[in-house]
Amino acid sequence: MKVKKIGIVSLSSGILGEDFIQHEVRLGKERLEKMGLDLVFLPHALKGMDYLQNHPQARAQDLLEAFQDDSIDMVLCAIGGEDTYRLLPYLFEKNELKEAVQEKIFLGFSDTTINHLMLHKLGLKTFYGQAFLPDVCELAKDMLPYTESYFKELIETGTIKEIRPSKVWYQERQDFSEKSLGQAMESYPDTGFELLKGPGKFRGKILGGCIEAIYTIFDNSRYEDTVDLCEKYQLFPKLEDWKGKILLLETSEEKSQPALYRKMVRALKDYGLFDQVQGVLVGKPQDKVYYEDYKKILLEELQDKDLSLVYNINVGHATPRCIVPFGLEAEVDVKDQVIRFES
Rank of each mutant, 00 (worst) to 15 (best):
T251M: 12
D111R: 14
G108E: 01
S256A: 12
P320T: 01
D69W: 11
K201S: 04
D225Y: 02
Y261A: 06
M1G: 13
E103M: 13
F151P: 13
Q257V: 15
G208S: 03
M185N: 07
P320S: 03
Y150W: 05
F67V: 11
M1K: 12
Y128F: 03
F218H: 00
D111H: 14
E300K: 13
G36Q: 04
I339A: 03
F326R: 08
I72T: 08
P199N: 09
L52E: 09
L11V: 09
M1S: 12
P165Y: 02
T216V: 04
N95Y: 09
D225M: 04
N312M: 04
V338F: 07
E30P: 07
A58L: 10
R266E: 04
Y290W: 10
L87R: 00
K263A: 10
G81K: 03
V101D: 03
Y294C: 06
I155A: 10
S180K: 11
G123T: 09
K255R: 13
L52P: 07
V289E: 05
G158Y: 06
I163C: 06
L46Y: 07
A213Q: 00
Y271C: 04
M49W: 14
R262G: 09
L39K: 08
Q303R: 15
Q303L: 09
D175N: 14
G279A: 11
F218E: 00
E24F: 14
K94R: 15
I72S: 07
S110L: 13
F20S: 06
E18N: 10
M74C: 14
P199M: 12
K121G: 02
L281E: 03
D304L: 12
G7S: 06
L46D: 05
S256D: 11
K104G: 00
C230K: 10
E148A: 09
E231Y: 15
P258K: 05
F92T: 07
M1T: 14
E153A: 09
R173L: 09
Y146S: 02
K243A: 10
R26C: 13
R203Q: 12
I8A: 11
Y215T: 01
K245G: 04
F274S: 10
Q171D: 10
S149H: 04
P145G: 05
G28L: 02
P258D: 02
R59G: 12
